[in-house]
């Protein structure tokens, strides 16, 4: 089943084209990795898919589960099953993790026509999900991402993912700023959430995370689009020869 289909997408920010004629199809149950050098615009791709307002699509199409993704508001995309784990999750002072997530979970339930959870029901759900990821109850009372370490932020993203159960999760540089132990926690968390119905798109510029979450497909991204696709071995090849050889190939 096709989850995400992107066709000839061209997009950018402030009249500068960053994504150029980009195409990709992701089926349920698959793990895709997009690899590319720093500054190639990989994050732009994730922002465009999630609908950040500064980014403008000039041509091309994208569907999530057959729905025209580009016509949807960011929150509709989220509620329709798209989750973006951000490279730099933003802090929202004064808003606790649990309060924030209660709003998010109930927004999704409302969208799906389910009754909203009351405080007690939600807390039960949140606590068990947090426990799975080794996140303390104390942490849930803190203001979201305020004063969090890099590892805490990423773990919080995975917690949100586990509660919102997206069909397609995009992990944008989920490994940045993490030591090896924190990276393992994140990878284990993500692996637990994998099913035959959902899919993962991992955006990264090196291999560390891919050693822990095995991709089915690896795409090399440069100059706004995919320049080569292959299986997990492509990532190893890349590690040995570097981006330069692939870029020269093009």
């Amino acid at each position: 089943m096709v989850l995400l289909k992107i066709e000839n997408l061209t997009a950018g920010v402030a009249q500068k084209e960053i994504i150029k004629n980009f195409s990709l199809t992701i089926n349920a149950g698959e793990v895709h990795a997009i690899m590319g050098p720093n500054g190639a615009g990989k994050s732009t791709l994730s922002y465009v898919l999630a609908g950040k307002s500064d980014y403008e699509v000039t041509s091309g199409k994208a569907w999530l589960n057959g729905q025209d993704l580009l016509q949807m508001k960011p929150e509709e995309r989220a509620n329709a099953g798209l989750f973006l784990s951000m490279q730099y999750p933003v802090a929202i002072p004064g808003v606790s993790v649990s309060n924030f997530l209660k709003h998010a979970v109930n927004a999704k339930r409302k969208y799906a026509g389910l009754p909203e959870l009351d405080a007690a029901e939600f807390l039960k759900l949140l606590r068990s999900a947090a426990k799975e990821l080794g996140i303390s109850a104390e942490m849930l009372k803190r203001e979201i991402n305020v004063g969090f370490s890099g590892g805490e932020k990423k773990r919080m993203e995975i917690l949100q993912m586990s509660l919102l159960k997206p069909q397609l999760a995009i992990l944008d540089e989920a490994d940045s700023g993490l030591d090896i132990d924190a990276l393992r926690v994140v990878a284990e968390g993500v692996n637990k959430l994998r099913t035959a119905d959902n899919a993962l798109l991992i955006i990264t510029h090196h291999n560390d995370l891919l050693d822990l979450i095995k991709p089915d497909f690896v795409h090399i991204y440069a100059d706004g689009h995919i320049v080569r696709s292959g299986d997990a071995n492509l990532a190893l090849e890349l590690e040995q020869s570097g981006y330069k050889s692939f870029l020269e190939e093009v």
Binding site: R77, N79, L101, E143
Partner: peptide, 28 residues
């Protein structure tokens, strides 16, 4: 900030609800 608003929206929270959430956090 646009970033805060986008973060909330990405988690499925509508813009108006997000503004309310951010403001109440500001006033906490």
């Amino acid at each position: 900030s646009d970033e805060q608003l986008f973060y909330c929206q990405q988690r499925g929270i509508g813009a108006e609800e997000a503004v309310g959430l951010i403001v109440s956090g500001f006033c906490k």
